[in-house]
Write a protein that binds this DNA or RNA. Structure first.
Lengths: 195, 195, 195, 195
DNA sequence: GATGAATGAGAGTTCATTCAT
DNA sequence: TATGAATGAACTCTCATTCAT
């Protein structure tokens, strides 16, 4: 218990500090202070700043991959799959706001652009998205004239940008707003924005 | 002349180094070496790392705002405005690849999330986008049931994600691919992805 | 019993770790792990890294002084005394290889050069050596023209360097090699290396 | 000039500090302070503590190898070669006391015992010594019954131990003492210590 | 006796920036 | 204009040691 407590306190503190300052400007001393533990304990448990950050990042990707695999394998109707993907992001925004902030501001950018590992993770996610888009096309639901590749970045881009704006504004996300956003994204993606 | 030469060499070197390593990991010594000048000279002309970076960032935003203002004021048909916005990003990818790489990997993320200045710039761009979306709604071209806010992040998200993927893959962008991407984004945005 | 067991396991582990890494690079955690005990226990028994090291060093010096005092007091023939001194080092190499490795690589150097205590111990040994050399001169066996001081460092230098080379090469020391080395050192020291 | 001045001041300061405290306890801050330069300048020129130390160590080995090669190649009488080798160590003690102190207290021990590089350097020196001993045997000057290996460590051990004692006592080495020590070592090595 | 979580002073190193030339 | 030597604050990480259990 005591052990897990402190470990979790450090992880939580790290989530906050990484979100507030970004990886580069986050200080291990800040994290320790925020967690209410000594400097050395952070190293005792996590070894280095990079390891601590990677642990957080990893947990994000694992959640994301898990959800995507589930949707890919499920028998739900196609639209429902899209809704579930959107909901996953919105739910994470509600339940783990620091985690998703770090994702949109740090992970999906800097680390993706400047490390092999980051790039590979991103591409894996994109690949899972594409699989679902291909399925939509094969089921006759999506337009086959548009490449799955293009469909992926339009769909995902809409979600990511929405989340980014929420994070930037630190706006609260009520159930109602969740529904409206989901239906807006889904509607435009499927039926277009035209009047 | 000699003065401008060296200044430009420094700017070009900075573009490369910031793209390759990101702001945090870019070294002033790297930039000076890449530019082939002493690193006192970088300070002589630009004062500090931050100023140098801001200069680059500023040039990006100014280009972007200029384009958006132009579209906003123009009498073109609505679809053409959207095409022009998409083209602006794609053209920049072709002509100033380092600049747009820095934008997607650094500016629109880290600096946006962690500085007031960055946030303000981003919101200004979003506001210009929204103005155009509102215009589309008022002209009866866009669906009024969807908020201009939502329309903005869907449209812009598609573009940004496409650019991100191009940057990540360092893929060459031929005229043909430009056209296909533009029409895919436009088609899905206006008419949806459904079969 | 249990108590002595663990204490000895710690001492043995310390001997290994100090030999492998040297005092400066030896970690208390390494020693505890090697001994198979928690590292609180190392402190419980030995108080500090320095105390633990000193204990080992002390045991070496005590053995050495004991042997030297014995030889000094004994009525053996002079050559036999020299043989016994040489044999003491060689036997220790066989029976306590870690201990003598620590001696040649750490004790007789770093600690001797950088602490008062180390210096004093070394000089005490040298003084005992000199006493024996003086005895040899007085018995008419050693050349009185050469100072006991000089005789000491030539005799001891040969032994120490031989041991050093053995330690470096981690060479096994058979009975036969022991004899050959002993007789070589003795022969050169007494009769010279000339043809 | 200015450049070399500071570099040399740092090297000199490093020689002093490494001698006084040993590698492990030497502080880069001490070296900078002693040299009268800023902390960063030591890194500007030398990159790291290890590089700085290695530079010093390297200079020692190069001097030593140079001398040994010269003796090996020369046509001098055999005894003269031995005298020159002894003199090299004694001269270095007079002219570069810090360097030789570092050698006997740090290099020829810790680094030799705990690094591949150190071991290799030591063995190279031993090999050069052996070559000279073999030459002595072939010229009929040294006893062929004693292996060149044994001859080497007896001869070198005497020198090293003498130097060690000098270093420990910080004794001044007059011309007269140099001569006495040289002749003592040479006499015992060639003709033995017997009366 | 025995554990290992917890501490924090202290070390090496980096790098933006300054400044004498 | 142009150089690069020189600075030192700031940061990450290590590890001997303590102490509650």
């Amino acid at each position: 218990m005591a052990r897990n407590d402190k470990q979790e306190m450090i992880i939580d503190a790290a989530l906050e500090v990484f979100r507030e300052k970004g990886y580069a400007n986050a200080r291990m001393a800040d994290i320790a202070r925020r967690a209410g533990v000594s400097y050395g304990l952070v190293y005792h448990y996590f070894g280095s700043k990079e390891v601590l950050f990677d642990l957080i990042v990893e947990s994000w990707w694992n959640d994301l991959y898990g959800m995507m695999e589930t949707e890919k394998a499920s028998n739900s109707r196609f639209r429902e799959k899209l809704v579930n993907i959107i909901q996953f992001f919105l739910d994470t925004y509600v339940n783990k706001p620091n985690l998703i902030s770090i994702f949109v501001s740090e992970v999906c950018r800097s680390s993706v652009y400047h490390t092999e590992e980051g790039l590979a993770r991103f591409l894996k996610f994109f690949s899972l998205c594409e699989d679902i888009m291909v399925e939509g096309q094969e089921r006759g639901i999506l337009n086959k004239e548009i490449s799955a590749h293009h469909l992926t970045y339009i769909f995902y881009g809409a979600i990511e940008t929405f989340i980014s704006v929420m994070v930037l504004g630190r706006e609260p996300l009520t159930k109602k707003r969740q529904e409206r956003a989901t239906s807006a994204i889904l509607h435009v993606f499927m039926d277009g924005a035209k009047a």
